[in-house]
Amino acid sequence: MKKLAALVSLLCVYTLSFAQYDENALKVLDAMSAKYKKIPAYSADISYSLVNETDGINEEFRGKITVKGEKYRLELDEQVVINDGTTFWTYLPDVNEVNIDNYDPDEDEISPSKIYEAYKDGYKYVYIGDETVGGTKHAVIDLVPNDKDAQYFKIKLFISQSDNSLTKWTMFDKSGNQYHYTIDNFNSGINPTDAYFQFDQSKYPGVEVIDLR
């Protein structure tokens, strides 16, 4: 186990040493960012999986995400996560419980509303190559944080070369977890109200409220 940990650490150092500010990667990232900046709000189906080969973990979840500026609402079967830019709610349907906390953007390293611009602050980026995903050619780009203490040591983006859309990404943490996200049925023709990004307690009779603020 110690040898495995040492190998992971060595790979992290190797990646950090050789990741650069790749001009080819920057062109692709800027085009992607410009695309999403023009969209005031959107919704999409999202597939999320957690994989840890060492611990034998392979869990998959599906849900829907809605984003408006810095606000987002992520609805999964086992939880609903809501962020209005100030307050953060996590609702657990199985126990009818909601946890409320202040939203701290500094602690939210890669939120659904930030993934399209993460490369602009605190990351090196490198163009890894091309890969066909769903019949469409994608650019594969790795983001590596400058901060060695960051939660994730690498983020791999898959960006469609046909329309500059980000269709999937994988986040790697230092404990061996890989978080895979895939976007489908992207819809930019929506106009959600600000209230949609707040937890309405009246819609959940008997909900237990745990206020951590």
Rank of each mutant, 00 (worst) to 15 (best):
L4I: 11
L7M: 11
L7D: 10
V8I: 12
V8R: 13
V8W: 14
L10W: 13
Y14E: 15
T15F: 08
F18Q: 11
F18S: 15
A19R: 02
Q20I: 15
Q20C: 11
K27Y: 04
K27H: 04
S33I: 03
A34W: 00
K35V: 11
K35Y: 14
K37P: 01
K38H: 09
D45W: 00
I46Y: 01
N52F: 01
T54K: 13
I57T: 05
N58I: 01
N58M: 04
E59K: 12
F61C: 01
G63A: 01
G63E: 01
T66P: 00
K68S: 11
E70F: 04
D77W: 04
D77R: 07
E78P: 09
E78G: 10
V81C: 03
I82H: 00
D84P: 09
T86G: 02
T87I: 13
F88K: 15
T90Y: 04
D94Y: 13
V95P: 08
N96A: 12
N96D: 15
E97H: 08
E97R: 10
V98L: 06
V98T: 10
V98R: 03
D104I: 12
P105W: 02
P105M: 02
D108P: 07
P112D: 01
K114V: 03
I115Y: 00
I115G: 01
E117K: 07
E117I: 10
E117Y: 10
Y119R: 09
Y123V: 06
Y125M: 04
V126E: 15
I128V: 15
T136G: 04
I141W: 14
I141F: 14
D142S: 04
P145K: 03
P145S: 05
K148L: 11
Q151D: 12
F153S: 03
K154Q: 15
I155K: 10
L157Y: 14
Q161E: 15
S162K: 15
D163I: 06
N164K: 08
S165D: 13
T167N: 15
W169P: 08
W169G: 09
T170E: 09
T170C: 03
M171V: 04
F172N: 08
S175R: 06
S175K: 08
N177D: 11
Q178C: 07
Q178Y: 05
Y179D: 12
Y181T: 04
T182G: 05
I183P: 01
S188V: 02
S188W: 02
P192G: 00
D200P: 05
D200M: 07
S202C: 11
Y204K: 07
G206K: 01
I210L: 14
D211G: 07
L212I: 12
R213V: 05
R213Q: 08
